[in-house]
């Protein structure tokens, strides 16, 4: 599969990475190269193979429903680039 400029623009937008127009063409070439290399996987017949999302045979462990965290507004917001009164701040959002 080779990707074109429009596809790169679409996925860059999905990933929220600003890409300048002049970067689209080289990126499309680069990504197409990688995708073509990846496509050797199509040589393998996997029709009967169940996908493997995790290497574990284990079962998900559960924790008890108790309050063990919170009450640390300062720590949570300490690294924030912008904020006030215990809130994070972002450019105004119009919903």
């Amino acid at each position: 599969m080779s990707v074109d400029k429009a596809t790169v623009a679409r996925i860059a937008h999905l990933a929220r990475i600003g890409v300048r127009d002049e970067e689209l063409e080289p990126l499309a070439a680069e990504l197409s190269g990688i995708l073509q290399w990846i496509e050797q996987l199509n040589e393998v017949d996997t029709a009967e193979v169940p996908p493997m999302a995790s290497v574990h045979d284990q079962v998900l462990r559960w924790r008890g429903d108790i309050i063990t965290d919170g009450g640390k507004q300062d720590e949570i917001t300490a690294n924030a680039p912008d904020g006030e009164n215990g809130f994070f701040a972002v450019p105004k959002v119009i919903e």
Binding site: G83, N85, F87, F88, A89, V90, P91, K92
Partner: peptide, 10 residues
């Protein structure tokens, strides 16, 4: 709370 910002409470 602010003319140009939205505030986030998690």
């Amino acid at each position: 709370q602010h003319p140009r910002k939205s505030h986030v409470d998690l």
